[in-house]
Design a binder for these strands. Structure first.
Length: 716
DNA sequence: ATCACAATACTTTTT
DNA sequence: GTATTGTGAT
């Protein structure tokens, strides 16, 4: 089969593993996404599995789209001929929720509340509970609620042992009520409600199991508890499940991702086939050595030996700039030099940073130099005021129950409706046992409503009439015509005045809507909520790309700049007190390094401005971990060669040897320094260690990681 | 009562 | 530099 001729033996082994649970543990640049795509093609072409029975889950829309394109071209099919189902966890289950809406406490017209909407709900709830947002930070409350939801904890079961958790519990209760009355779901609901649905309706679960007997998952290390639960539900006891993962690239712990799901998977499927991919096709050996030196400082981790046939390549350049402006200037100049010398094109370069705020200095440097750049994510397109305004109008037209959108829409552009008028509207709605929108629509039709002061009535009924008109035509005209009409009647362009760029954003959104002309308003709104505009900006512009380290995952560039290698920036100061969070910062740096094919340039600024004030910084601790003999530039004297040697020695020596063979067997007698004597009940060889279950005479049954436990085998 | 403008406070990463 | 809140003018 010529499909497999492009693959190396390891990759081929993975792709052709017989159906069943398969885990591919892959290093960066080892072609793991490629393996996933070929697996899909292999299932269809070689094993004659109907493509429609395959469900592939990813974490970003971009990954899903890319996979779809590549898989279809491998299969020589067009998207129309019933391809596999590819999508993100969120979009896939949102789709299922719409289909199954009848059994759930919302209608299929539900809207998805994004981060800003969720925060608005929390703020409102806090306000109603008379809480000072300075004392109880809405952001933290939301994070806490989200965590609870991910762990399937209901408001009633939410522990309230401190003042903060008690407030959170009350906010959580209201928050859920608001979602319900707004006919809205948040991101967590998109995963939780399917779990509940499947739980309560096993028949429904069975239907989906039968529909998708073949499951593929990309970036498995990023699954959270809810996602893993769903995956297991869909997979059942004996699934054809194919997942690819790299625990070293796990960078989403803060949103609930748990790379230990990799270990869990091993526990849950005893027949799991594990395949390692360590050969790297992306980077030079120098880059890999640096990356390994960084990640190997991490304790409790299986060491991967990344290797490449690409040769050693250029050293890594490390530069200390005076401040962030000079840092940015250095980047621009360096790129100009690469371009002039013909070593690279502008589009080959990427500039990565820890926080979105850091992009500004770099953007300014490019603007000063009059050079173009591509910005990924960042001050999100969908986060812009004018874009959110228009989306709010669309959501309101689609789902009049959405009060968050109503509140936004009714105030912009200003139309003489302020706090007092809104309060009157709310009171009138309560009295009439109707929603505010119902009242508005009645007013719009010229009906009398009790409790609305004459003063406010004119502006309210004018707005109500507009809304009524839009709702009436929403299903009769195509999406972009609806948008045109809304913009026109709002005189939105005049409202924006001479802010041409903002109008351009509105038009760009209209352009997106045009693509959804056929699919309609529902799909458009879902897309808008779930897409993280990772790629909304010009694709084929030959210019450097600016992006966060998080956004960089899964990408590769010939030349990578990582800026802001200062303590407090990378690692970020918010991660300082938590070893797990600090470990994640390290992985983030590792991800950045391993994006590079040919060259890495690392930068730091001696002085950095943060919210107006300029402070001195220390070099990032991660710089110390880089092997000096792989570096060049002006910041390598941070540690003496002797120290460097010492660090490297200890680093290698502190490793626990990897078991290649099972050392323990059921029935063996062992002794443990703490637990004393016992008998092995079960031993399992994992990827990074051997896990043993021992029944100790003194303390009973314990699960142990063999290398850590210091178990001694007693001769029988 | 509403709105524009000024003062104030806050910034990790994203589906 | 930006979201949110506060204040004064209309």
């Amino acid at each position: 089969m010529d499909l497999l001729s492009d693959l190396n033996p390891q990759q081929r082994e993975a792709v052709t593993a017989s159906p069943g649970p398969v885990l591919v543990l892959a290093g960066p640049g080892s072609g793991k996404t490629r393996v996933l795509i070929y697996r899909l093609a292999y299932l269809v072409q070689e094993l004659q599995i109907p493509a429609g029975e395959i469900l592939a889950l990813t974490f970003t829309n971009k990954a899903a789209r890319e996979m779809e394109g590549r898989a279809l071209s491998l299969l020589e099919r067009s998207p129309s001929t019933g391809g596999p189902r590819l999508g993100t966890f969120h979009s896939t289950f949102a789709r299922i929720l719409r289909i199954e809406a009848d059994r759930l406490p919302f209608t299929r017209d539900f809207v998805i509340f994004d981060d800003a909407d969720q925060l608005a709900l929390v703020r409102q709830a806090l306000k109603e509970l008379n809480q000072d947002p300075k004392q109880v930070q809405p952001r933290r409350v939301l994070a806490s609620i989200s965590r609870a939801k991910n762990e399937l904890i209901e408001p009633q079961a939410f522990s309230s042992d401190t003042y903060f958790t008690e407030i959170t519990r009350r906010v959580y209760e209201r928050y859920q009520q608001y979602l319900r009355t707004n006919n809205a779901l948040d991101f967590d609901d998109l995963l939780l409600l399917p779990i509940r649905l499947f739980h309560e309706h096993p028949g429904t679960l069975e239907t989906y199991r039968r529909r998708y007997p073949h499951l593929l998952v990309d970036e498995f290390q990023d699954t959270n508890t809810a996602q893993y639960t769903l995956l297991r539900m869909l997979a059942g006891a004996d699934p054809d499940l194919f997942v690819v993962a790299d625990p070293d690239q796990s960078i989403y712990r803060w949103r609930g991702a748990d790379y230990r799901n990799v270990q869990l998977l091993r526990k849950d499927y005893s027949n799991l086939v594990t395949i390692l991919l360590e050969q790297n096709y992306r980077s030079t050996q120098t880059i890999l050595d640096a990356a390994m030196a960084v990640i190997d400082r991490q304790p409790d981790r299986q060491r991967k030996q990344l290797f490449t046939e690409r040769g050693s390549g250029a050293r890594i350049l490390v530069h200390e700039a005076y401040d962030q402006d000079e840092e940015a200037q250095f980047v621009v100049e360096k790129i100009s030099m690469f371009t002039l010398s013909g070593e690279a094109e502008p589009g080959d370069c990427a500039i990565m940073y820890r926080t979105n705020a850091q992009s500004r200095a770099i953007e300014e440097a490019f603007l000063r130099a009059g050079l173009p750049y591509r910005l990924v994510g960042a001050q999100r397109f969908y986060g812009r005021k004018e874009v959110k305004d228009l989306i709010a109008y669309m959501r309101l037209i689609h789902n009049p129950a959405d009060q968050v959108s109503l509140m936004r829409a009714i105030r912009t552009p200003p139309r003489g409706i302020g706090d007092k008028t809104l309060e009157a509207l709310r009171v009138a709605a309560d009295q009439a046992e109707a929603t505010p929108v119902d009242i508005l629509l009645s007013l719009g039709r010229g009906e009398e409503v009790a409790g609305i002061p004459a003063r406010s009535r004119a502006s309210l009924s004018r707005f109500g009439a507009l809304l009524d008109g839009w709702i009436e035509i929403k299903d009769q005209v195509v999406l972009e015509s609806l948008i045109d009409r809304v913009l026109e009647q709002l005189e939105y362009r005049a409202y924006l005045g001479d802010a041409e760029d903002r109008w351009a954003n509105v038009m760009e959104l209209r352009g997106v809507a045009q693509e959804f002309s056929e699919l309609g308003l529902v799909e458009f709104l879902q897309q808008v909520a779930l897409v993280s505009d990772q790629d909304t900006l010009t694709e084929n512009l030959n210019a450097p790309t600016l992006l966060t380290l998080h956004a960089a995952k899964g990408l590769e560039f010939p030349i990578v700049f990582i800026v802001g290698l200062d303590e407090g920036e990378l690692p970020h100061f918010r991660s300082q007190d938590d070893p797990e969070a600090m470990a994640e910062e390290r992985r983030l740096f590792y991800v950045g390094l391993t994006r590079a094919q040919d060259r890495v340039i690392l930068l730091r600024a001696f002085r950095r401005r943060a919210r107006g004030v300029s402070t001195l910084t220390d070099p990032s601790r991660f710089l110390d971990d880089l092997p000096a003999d792989r570096l060049e530039g002006d910041l390598i004297g941070v540690r003496t060669p002797a120290q460097d040697e010492y660090f490297r020695e200890t680093r290698w020596q502190s490793r626990v040897p990897v078991p290649t063979q099972a050392r323990y067997q059921a029935g063996m007698h062992v002794t443990h320094p703490q637990f004393g004597e016992g008998v092995v009940l079960e031993a399992q060889l994992g990827y990074d260690d051997e896990e043993v279950t021992v029944n100790f005479e003194e303390v009973g049954i314990k699960h142990l990681v063999a290398s850590m436990a210091g178990l001694q085998i007693e001769d029988p």
